[in-house]
Design a protein around this nucleic acid. Structure first.
Length: 594
RNA sequence: GCGCCAAUAGCUCAGCUGGAUAGAGCAACGGUUUUCUAAACCGUCGGUCUCAGGUUCGAAUCCUGAUUGGCGUACCA
């Protein structure tokens, strides 16, 4: 996203080189960047690349181009050259005008519809255990990316593909059948997903015991894992499920129902939502006609044992099984079918899968197959791969209980928020529901910001012993800045009718703040194009930091004259609006006071 | 073995298409409150950007090779 002044600077620089040195500079050789703090100016043109046309030193080239630009771009006040850097100072009148005409405008930071439809699939939980910290990262990423793309002009469908069937579900079911004594969420006052997860753990414990016993009898580990009676029983249950056995289906529906009720509460608390739910129990048989199509087209081939494969060795990958010898689906079979289903239903141009990086290979193969099958939409598929959340002790493992539970963590965050807020004595005059809401907002703000400020691709380290910060580069810092502004606006009786005066001179902190605010649309664009909420998160922090600097350096309510006060109120209001808006795209609420 | 990804301050992270003396936060130390919310602000300390080559006027960024860590390479999902 390039604004008017950037456009002008680039155009006139090209023109300057053309007229002064009789050469055309290719666009990619023009580097326009924001001037670093320690130098005078706001925009910098790098002149090194032009020296091959000018045959002069970088300094002299910069001087000549600067002198060319000044009379042609009215916003330029002055320039200076340091080595190969041409630093341009725009007039305060320009910045004040940019603020008034663009930044305070209603449409600032918005994009018109681009006419494209896009699906973001995220969350996609298994229904045999509760959500943990890794799922939280997935949910926050998916939600935020969807919101950012919506803002950027896409029509967005948020989809959740629930893995509600399979051997892992049967494990929980079997354990409950054996040891549950009819326990329900009501009778145990356990959240449904936690109740089911409890039996998943019980299953695993029993399974391990059986394996140990068999190994003591001399079986190899591999054989023991296959022959343990309890796993066989679970497999049998899966077959009964697939055969439509009423009792099994009934149990399955009941227990999944518990899990859904539990997930619903967790999703609500996280603040994420979905437009479309897919269930694997509906989609797991899909994809077989695509297998046939692939065979007909010669993309797939059948081996002697009747299994179907694709040879991807020419693409640097391996041979990949796409249908079992007995004709049943594997993971990728149903994913082929589900991809087709999604496009048949919604006809979107792009489809994003928010799934951890352990499945990089799977998606590479999936997309490649769809491309080989000639699906026109295959180019619009994208795997938003994110890094695992690790503990200092290593990977989280549900079965071994070394997970940071999503609900527990949110409880802790709320408690910490409450404690800190009370310590700081900021609860005065708030009703109990208001307090509760505030603790929730701040606790979730800290958690969400902590997860979203890191680039999705990078793995994330979470130390349960070190609580998530509420100071510095954090969600609460940004939330606090917002609340602080709201307080000033209230005291200054700011309203939409407060006049916004023209100014031709700004203080450093005012100018820096305006410049930063002016970047907002470009930041949204970058975040959208790179599917990276982290870009936006870091920007919000920059804005808050710059505002606090401004706040400390200048008086707002006690400004020398009324018009200056009004200008600063407007500047404050615009900052608060952009912070609130940017944070909302991250799924983070900001409080009116804290 | 092969493939993919990562490596930046004691810790957690930024660093846009290659550009100026690599930036924040935390931690440590010091300062700022009769003035708009101190969850704040200012300062000090802290770096062979894992290593070695290469491309370039210029490399944390691009290329090659190594090292370390993670993940994958299932008729699991």
């Amino acid at each position: 996203m390039i604004n008017a002044i950037q456009q002008q600077l680039i155009e006139y620089t090209k023109q300057a080189v053309r007229e002064l040195y009789q050469s055309d500079v290719p666009d990619h050789q023009i580097t326009l960047q924001e001037t670093r703090k320690e130098f005078e100016g706001q925009w910098t043109i790098v002149t090194f690349p032009f020296t091959r046309f000018s045959k002069k030193t970088p300094e002299l080239t910069g001087q000549e181009i600067g002198a060319y630009l000044v009379p042609r771009i009215s916003a330029i006040e002055s320039f200076n050259v340091i080595k190969g850097f041409l630093n341009i100072s725009l007039s305060d009148a320009y910045w004040a005008d940019l603020f008034k005409t663009a930044i305070t405008g209603k449409s600032f930071g918005t994009f018109g519809p681009n006419g494209r439809k896009l699906m973001v699939e995220y969350s996609s939980p298994n229904t045999n255990k509760p959500l943990h910290l890794g799922h939280i990262r997935n949910n926050l990423l998916g939600y935020s990316v969807a919101e950012i793309l919506k803002r950027y002009g896409y029509e967005v469908i948020k989809a959740n593909l629930v893995n509600d069937r399979g051997i892992h579900i049967c494990k929980s079911m079997l354990a409950w059948q054996r040891w549950g004594n009819g326990e329900t969420p009501e009778s145990s006052s356990l959240k449904g997903d936690h109740l089911v997860g409890k039996y998943y753990v019980l299953f695993d414990r029993a399974y391990k015991q059986e394996i140990d016993a068999l190994r003591a009898q001399g079986l190899s580990e591999e054989d023991a894992k296959k022959q343990a009676p309890i796993i066989r029983e679970a497999q049998q249950m899966l077959q009964q499920w697939e055969a439509g056995d009423e009792a099994v289906i009934g149990l399955w529906k009941m227990m999944n129902g518990w899990v859904y009720a539990g997930f619903e509460r967790t999703y609500n608390r996280l603040g994420v939502d979905f437009d479309k739910y897919y269930y694997e129990s509906d989609t797991y048989l899909l994809g077989k006609d695509i297998i046939q199509e692939g065979l007909d087209k010669g993309v797939f081939f059948r081996k002697a044992d009747n299994s179907v494969w694709i040879d991807l060795t020419e693409d640097g990958l391996d041979e990949k099984l796409v249908l079992r010898g007995d004709g049943t689906s594997v993971y990728i079979t149903q994913d082929l079918g589900t991809a087709q289903l999604k496009f048949d239903e919604f006809g979107m141009e792009e489809s994003i899968y928010v799934v951890g990086n352990e499945q990089d290979y799977h998606f590479k193969v999936l997309f490649l197959i769809l491309k080989k099958l000639g699906r026109s939409w295959a180019d619009g598929l994208f795997h938003l791969s994110y890094g695992m959340v690790d503990l200092p002790s290593g990977k989280m493992k549900s079965r071994e209980g070394t997970v940071v539970d999503a609900d527990d963590l949110m409880d802790e965050m709320r408690e910490t928020a409450k404690k800190r807020t009370e310590e700081l004595g900021k609860t005065e005059g708030l009703s109990d529901p208001e307090k509760e809401h505030l603790y929730h907002i701040i606790g979730m703000g800290a958690l969400k910001y902590f997860l979203l400020k890191v680039e999705p691709k990078k793995r994330l380290l979470f130390d349960p012993n070190e609580s998530i910060d509420f100071q510095g580069h954090t969600g609460p810092f940004i939330q606090y800045t917002h609340a602080r502004i709201k307080s000033v606006l209230a005291k200054g009786s700011f309203s939409a009718h407060t006049p916004l005066p023209v100014r031709d001179e700004l203080t450093d902190s005012e100018r820096d703040l305006i410049r930063l605010l002016g970047d907002y649309p470009a930041v949204i664009e970058v975040s959208a194009k790179e599917f990276s909420p982290a870009q936006l998160a870091n920007y919000c922090f920059e804005v808050a930091k710059q505002y606090n600097k401004f706040y400390h350096e200048e008086s707002i309510l006690k400004a020398e004259v009324e018009s200056l006060k009004n200008f600063r109120l407007h500047l404050s209001e615009a900052t608060a609006r952009i912070i609130a808006d940017g944070m909302s795209l991250l799924g983070i609420e900001v409080p009116e006071r804290m």
